[in-house]
Computed example of a mutant assay.
Amino acid sequence: MLKSSIAALVLCAALPASLQPAAAEGRSFNGTWSVQLVTESGLCDSRYSVALAITDGDVRVASAGEGGATVSGRIGPDGNVGLTVRRGSASGAASGRLQANSGAGTWSVSALCSGRWTAQRRTARVAQAD
């Protein structure tokens, strides 16, 4: 049970976001993004993938089947990433930077595990949640 909760958090921990308000500024990042996570230390599985949707700076998981995690944060106008992900009592964080069609950064889930993430834009349109 703990391992599946950690896996759901890690899948969502790469969600790009920033603490700065961004309405029109985040539009350059609109679309569906494929995010790959690699664990570098801790108890998590070695690799995870997740599809994310960005709309006007807001970030959400593109598929409703990603374990019920909640995400807070936004994309900054310069592409800076900084977010918090929660699922149950566990929480995770991610930071880094997005560019026009790619991005990279680091993530951690409490003291349990940490690693790096990379992202590639798949479409400029935002996918609807299932």
Rank of each mutant, 00 (worst) to 15 (best):
R125Q: 13
W33Y: 08
S41Q: 12
V61D: 06
V85P: 09
S91R: 15
C12I: 04
T106D: 01
T55N: 11
G82T: 05
R27F: 08
G57T: 10
L2R: 11
R47G: 08
S41F: 04
K3Y: 00
S4C: 04
R97V: 12
A17R: 06
D78M: 04
S91K: 12
F29D: 07
E40G: 11
P77H: 03
C113A: 14
V85D: 01
P21N: 13
D78K: 05
L52K: 02
A22M: 14
N101T: 10
A53M: 01
I75L: 08
A23P: 14
A8S: 14
G26V: 06
R47Q: 06
G73V: 06
A23M: 15
A22Q: 13
A119D: 13
S49M: 02
F29P: 10
A17Q: 15
R74K: 15
T84P: 02
I54D: 08
G67T: 11
R122F: 05
T32G: 03
Q36I: 01
L112N: 02
C113Q: 05
W107R: 07
Q128D: 14
Y48M: 05
V35E: 10
Q36K: 14
A14M: 15
V109A: 07
S89A: 12
M1W: 00
I54G: 02
Y48V: 00
A14W: 03
A51H: 02
R60N: 12
L43Y: 04
L43S: 15
P77K: 09
G115C: 12
Y48R: 10
V59K: 09
S114F: 00
G73F: 10
A90C: 07
A64S: 12
P21E: 14
A111N: 04
A13H: 03
T118D: 09
S110P: 01
T39H: 04
A53K: 00
N80C: 08
A93L: 13
S102R: 03
L98C: 11
R74Q: 13
S91Y: 15
G96P: 15
R116D: 10
G57C: 11
L83V: 00
S18Y: 10
C12H: 11
R86H: 14
S102A: 14
A14R: 02
R116G: 00
N101K: 12
A7F: 07
I54W: 05
V61Q: 09
L2V: 06
A64R: 13
A104G: 05
R60C: 04
R74T: 08
D58N: 10
G76I: 03
W107C: 02
G76C: 11
S28A: 02
D78L: 05
A104T: 13
V71Q: 05
S49W: 00
G105I: 00
A129I: 00
V10W: 08
E25A: 15
A111F: 04
V71P: 06
S95N: 14
A51S: 05
W117Q: 09
A100N: 09
R47W: 01
S114G: 07
A24V: 15
A127W: 12
